[in-house]
Nucleic acid binder design. Structure first.
Length: 536
RNA sequence: GGCCCCAUCGUCUAGUCAGGUCCAGGACACCGGAUUUUCGAUCCGGCAACGCGGGUUCGAAUCCCGCUGGGGUCACCA
């Protein structure tokens, strides 16, 4: 096999689609697997205004997942430039060659005319073929009008009326046949001299020596045009491999950012939006700036692990064998194979992603969790930033005692809440453990049931005194303390434990009670119980 | 509508190319049990699929034909 070179060619849209990321991943994987190169090329022929801004989220997504390219923006390479907007000379030369070989022609028909032709065909229910009026013009006439600067496009001449079939040997779909003789002549150059996607792609894939074009199946219908273009230009075409596109959860419809409204009602997608509702407000992200679950950015901001996202993405349409689901990146690279890519579209499954996430989160060392969680605590002003400063001084929610909250506090917080954190952003669900003693909210339903109801107040007062007098304040001692208390008072453990939990955390549920008390420490426990008692 | 693709548990999939070992395997979700001060986590167990109809064959999830269903794409977007 010749050197493997794959590419991903996003257009600068200002966001990175999760489905596009999956396509990029497969390209990256295939290149890595075969010791080849992965090229990033920017498809900006359509000229964008602030390209830097539109590109930033794309680069960021690749960096986050650590899928770096061997050639492309920033790193450069021998086949640059890697922005199509800077490669117009190449496209122009190829166009001139096609024109000279009479494999393309200048079409002087105004766009309205082509549109009218198309609509007429539609009305009469016949296959639309563009009318080649300009082909009737004499070469001199064409030259004269072109030189006079008369607006026109350049169209590639498709074989017409020959009943010609073209077979593409797709690496995933196998042979796919097209009736090439009743396809309209595609425009390859706009009136302003800029190339169209189908053309620029062919020219660049050749020049950049791309060996395998791995892309989503939605591009299948472009393939005969590109194959013919390669042929006309005298290229050996690359291998085409059309992977199934990523569908919306539980459906076969292509995942699309335009259908976000619909996804809000999709039960499988629901949890993603709920997660956003829970986490983003605490990070101070305004509602209109929230990343949505169709974008890669969403997963980064919520606090998913790159390894989990890659694991999930790789399993959409590809499998290693009949039983392996959990795979780290190296395992996937070592086993990736186009032959094991399936043909039918596959829904993106948030539940499955979460199970991968849970698995990989569980394997993290506590220090890694601390590092992952810290930015969230800082953003929510529950911990100082790296310089020891609070980003914003918010007198109300700030806990003076915590200004110099040591890293060890976060460490013990994570020891306490451990596996309850599925994504890093979940740490904010436990903000009540870090907020000032008078700053967290009580779950009123739980408060009524567990604290206000007799005999809870009396028990709470009694147990408060035990806590105040306790010799040791570690979980084991506290447990012994409470058990002794319960026996003495001849009550059930549940009677007091729930009262203490609600009084001290405001929550009806949470981590182990005694561990929680130990984490908070005596002073805070007493202060919180006093606060609860005071609001009876 | 034209062209093209696809079709196994609710979901992601293995098995299909080389028909029997598949009354179809794994994972997620779901349900039940164990454990537990709560929630969660964990461990056990369970439910659950070859779209339909014809062939070919001793034998078909696997091969052939048809149907049905789902989807992609039809721009001077990418």
């Amino acid at each position: 096999m010749p050197a493997v070179r794959t590419r991903f060619a996003p257009s600068p849209t200002g966001y990175m689609h999760i489905g596009g990321m999956r396509t990029a991943l497969f390209n990256w994987l295939f290149a890595r697997r075969h010791g080849g190169q992965f090229i990033l090329r920017i498809d900006d022929t359509d000229r964008v205004r602030n390209i830097d801004e539109a590109l930033a989220p794309i680069f960021r997504a690749f960096q986050w997942l650590d899928l770096m390219w061997d050639e492309g923006p920033d790193v450069g390479g021998p086949h640059g430039p890697y922005f199509q907007s800077q490669r117009f000379d190449h496209y122009h030369n190829a166009m001139v060659a096609l024109l000279a070989a009479r494999k393309a022609f200048r079409d002087f028909d105004p766009p309205e005319r082509a549109k009218a032709d198309r609509e007429a065909a539609e009305r009469e229910q016949r296959t639309y073929l563009n009318v080649r009026r300009s082909l009737e013009l004499s070469p001199d006439e064409v030259a004269r009008r072109a030189e006079a600067g008369e607006p026109h496009v350049v169209r590639f001449l498709m074989p017409r009326g020959e009943g010609r079939m073209l077979t593409i040997d797709d690496a995933i779909l196998g042979p796919v046949e097209f009736h090439v003789s009743n396809m309209p002549d595609p425009v390859i150059m706009r009136g302003d001299g800029s190339p169209l996607y189908n053309f620029a792609t062919v020219v660049d894939d050749e020049l950049m020596e791309i060996s395998h074009v791995i892309r989503a199946q939605e591009h299948l219908s472009n393939t005969p045009i590109q194959a013919l273009l390669h042929e006309a230009l005298g290229h050996v075409p690359p291998v085409f491999a059309h992977i199934p596109y990523v569908a919306a959860p539980g459906s076969k419809e292509k995942l699309s950012k335009r259908k976000l409204d619909k996804y809000q009602k999709n039960p499988l997608f629901q949890k993603m939006f709920e997660q956003a509702d829970r986490i983003f407000p605490k990070l101070g992200i305004p509602e209109n700036e929230r990343p949505d679950p169709v974008m890669v950015e969403y997963y980064e901001r919520i606090g998913y692990l790159p390894v989990a996202v890659i694991n999930a993405l790789a399993r959409i349409g590809w499998s290693l064998d009949d039983k392996t689901d959990i795979m780290d990146r190296d395992t996937i690279v070592a086993n990736f194979d186009l032959g094991r890519v399936i043909k039918s579209p596959a829904g993106f499954d948030p539940d499955k992603l979460d199970s991968f996430q849970q698995h990989w989160m569980g394997r993290l060392a506590i220090e890694e969790k601390v590092a992952g969680v810290l930015p969230y605590l800082v953003a929510a002003r529950l911990a100082p930033d790296s310089s020891g400063q609070w980003t914003v001084d918010s007198g109300e929610t700030r806990d003076p005692a915590a200004v110099h909250r040591p890293r060890s506090t976060v460490h013990s917080l994570l020891t306490l809440i451990g596996k309850r954190i599925k994504v890093f952003g979940d740490v904010l669900d436990f903000d009540y453990l870090l907020l000032p003693d008078d700053g967290f909210a009580y779950d009123e339903t739980a408060f009524d049931k567990r604290v206000r109801k007799e005999p809870a107040p009396e028990l709470l007062r009694g147990f408060r005194e035990r806590l105040a007098a306790a010799e040791a304040f570690d979980a084991a001692s506290l447990e012994a303390l409470m058990k002794a208390f319960v026996e003495e008072r001849r009550v059930k453990l549940g009677d007091i434990i729930h009262a203490v939990r609600v009084a001290v955390t405001g929550q009806a549920t949470g981590p182990g009670m005694f561990e929680t008390l130990e984490f908070l420490g005596r002073d805070k426990c007493l202060a919180r119980i006093d606060r609860a008692l005071a609001r009876l």
